[in-house]
Design a protein around this nucleic acid. Structure first.
Lengths: 248, 248
DNA sequence: GCCAAACATTGATCGAAGTCAAAAACGAAA
DNA sequence: TTTCGTTTTTGACTTCGATCAATGTTTGGC
């Protein structure tokens, strides 16, 4: 359930940090005004479940701040993370009544929610929204397919290296770190969450991180703080094409 | 390269077998007319590569007849299928210059191609197309995520059972087989293609199929012809939720 | 500061799927 | 029919990651 928010009780769309990357990126002032009327903010604490798979959904939303994960579970408890939701990512599916996945807040999380019915109605007469949503969905599909290669064919070590590389690269673009220098970041995920993401057990995750540390590919401070002395070296460990193919 | 087609040199959209499920499903007569102007058919033999990853793409397309597979490969040869393209499925991404995956014809394949530039231009002024494409892309994303659970968490036996169940169900809906009776179908994939789809080796695929046969879950005639005497029994072997959740 | 709970590491052992290798079955072409 | 090549099956053995179990480490509440 919703927890009253402090930092985001209401924000003007024009001042929104995800204004130009979210589903509303292409909207003009007029369209934003109409979105303002159907939007509200919700905040969740780390670990809270935002949506249970199978639940009725009466809203769709954009992640404003924090990280959430999309997971699928089998009855016997086996769990697979099927998406990582970062700021500006979209949650929910227009035209669908019930949620298909669990959404869990990995960190403290703020979402900009839109009431579903009015949002769907607005999509029909606002091509700017469905065009942007199509673009974002195609990106997600590409990410999902890259993840399928990882899950189906990579070794445990390659999986860990790939995850670290993705997080490192995302942080590097945010912080505009020098390309040559060391890259430093904090893991936003527990070992268990990493395991669920990578299709491994948490013990294997721990062992492989220790191995990468022992081999000098990464340095660890505490459990979450990671330094990558040589990004190329880390990239070599991912098993991916080294040449070209610089997405993002 | 294109092979001259015999059965589909030109088909009127109104008579097209995928008219109501493809990207053009929502188009009106007027819009179809404009699509006719930029469309052409191409046919490929089983085994032919339609598109190489990294190649420049000057068209997008709908699968009209046959099956194709979308695969990603690592330099050392490890291959993962990331999508199975059935009639009405869409190939290519508007707004992208080069192909991100290999597309290979699994059976004899006919595609309805649209020149990319005109198609993109038409999308901008034809919400019916982008709306339908959004819907189809969201469906594909769901399928990709279901596949991530399979790749990350299912056992080899569950993977095989899941694949057989998907093909059996698709054929059952096509043939409108009696729900209670036996389901009979031909595997459209080689053992190697199945392995690439499931993230297994072809030996493991072969062994698990033999095991399911030995246990009476399926019957085999030749290498491709499969009979499922009890669909519920097969579903039990997939590891999926048995109750509710009847998609498609 | 102390304690409890959550999170993480490490070790020993096991088992499912991979690898290497050979034989069998099938289909297409001569 | 025979033969060749592809596809599939089966066997023996290995290995990577899972499992079970114990021990460390950090964090936040009192």
């Amino acid at each position: 359930m919703a927890v009253q928010d402090h930092t985001f009780s209401h924000v003007d769309c024009e001042a929104c940090p995800i204004r130009h990357r979210a589903v509303c990126a292409r909207c003009d002032a007029d369209e934003l005004e109409r979105l303002e009327e159907i939007k509200y903010y919700r905040t969740f604490e780390a670990g809270q479940t935002v949506i249970w798979s199978g639940d009725r959904m009466d809203f769709v939303a954009s992640v404003v701040e924090g990280i959430a994960s999309l997971t699928q579970a089998m009855e016997d408890g086996r769990t697979q993370m099927v998406g990582l939701l970062l700021p500006s990512d979209f949650v929910g599916r227009p035209g669908r009544e019930t949620a298909a996945y669990n959404v869990v807040a990995t960190t403290r999380l703020t979402m900009c929610c839109f009431r579903k019915k009015p949002f769907e109605a607005m999509m029909l007469r606002t091509p700017h929204i469905s065009q942007r949503l199509l673009e974002m969905t195609l990106d997600e599909l590409d990410a999902a397919r890259e993840w399928m290669l990882l899950l189906g064919r990579k070794t445990a070590r390659e999986k860990i290296a790939s995850l670290l590389a993705i997080i490192a690269r995302r942080d590097a673009t945010l912080k505009l770190a020098s390309a040559t220098g060391q890259i430093v970041f904090d893991l936003p995920l527990t070992r268990e969450a990493m395991a669920d993401y990578l299709g491994l057990t948490l013990e294997t995750v721990s062992r492989q991180i220790s191995a990468l540390k022992r081999d000098g590919v990464i340095q660890l401070e505490g459990k979450r703080h990671i330094t990558v002395p040589d990004m190329d070296r880390l990239m070599d460990e991912t098993g991916d094409d080294t040449d070209g193919g610089v997405y993002i």
